[in-house]
Amino acid sequence: MTSENAAITGDLRTKIISEPELILEDRDLMRALIAANEKVMGGNIVDLRGIAMERLESRLERLEETHRHVIAAAYENLAGTNMIHRAVLKMLDPAEFEEFLANLNNEIAEILRVDALRLVLESAVANDDPAARDLGDVLLVVEPGFIGEYLTQGRNVPVRQVTLRQVQPDSDLIYGDRADWVRSEACLKLDLGPGRLPGMLVFGAEDPHQFKPSQGTDLLTFFAGVFERAMRRWLS
């Protein structure tokens, strides 16, 4: 085809001839060219190359979508890891138990982005004991057996170290005046050492999707392990 009868003339034609990869890399242009070629061939001819290209494009789109999901999950996991590490470092700062509890209820809760945080300890000491009240509202002392009952909700199921679930508390025992708007929670069961009753760290969130059973628990399991060791030090 000469420049005299070519439909594309001038700088555009020169650009296409010198850099044809610009068209090959443009999906919309390639689709338009394939559609034009099919019209020229007529409806009774099957273009196997065009079909193959469509299938390859479909596979490429699926691969790209999977790639985006993998990258997003990796960034989310990295952000979660950094958040847990910051909370652990902040948890190791206090030199007194009262400061440790105050820090837990304020800075650590803020770092972990939870709306309510409660440390539950089983003990024969009543929760209205003055010594317990002096340690702040983050600490809740309960009767032996309460934690297992709370985690299983009365069902005959194994007690896991980390329980994630959507809830609507029917009492204010755990969350106090925040119980009305807590819609999901993470419960971390604590092993406080030989001869001691268990404990539990509870994170409450207003967002019903912040803690769900389908989520991974590796980071919270790590946090629970560090917290257990810190509590054993305070209780020794």
Rank of each mutant, 00 (worst) to 15 (best):
G50R: 04
N37G: 11
A126E: 13
L48P: 03
K189H: 14
L140P: 04
V114A: 14
D28M: 09
A124R: 13
L201Q: 00
P158Y: 02
G225V: 02
V202G: 07
I51F: 07
A124T: 10
S58I: 05
S236V: 10
G43I: 03
G145H: 02
R27V: 04
R59L: 15
N44P: 05
A73H: 11
K15L: 04
N156K: 04
L89S: 12
D28K: 12
N103S: 10
P213L: 03
T81G: 14
T217L: 11
H67D: 05
G10Q: 03
G80N: 08
A205M: 05
P169I: 01
P94K: 06
N105D: 14
T2D: 12
F203I: 06
F203T: 00
E206I: 12
G145I: 03
I45F: 09
I34S: 15
D172F: 01
L29F: 03
R229G: 08
D177S: 12
L24E: 08
E57T: 02
E185D: 14
R165K: 11
S184Y: 06
R133A: 13
C187G: 15
S184I: 01
R31M: 05
R160H: 15
M30L: 02
I84F: 00
A116Y: 02
I16L: 04
F203V: 07
L135G: 03
E54R: 11
A73M: 08
L235T: 02
V167S: 10
G195S: 01
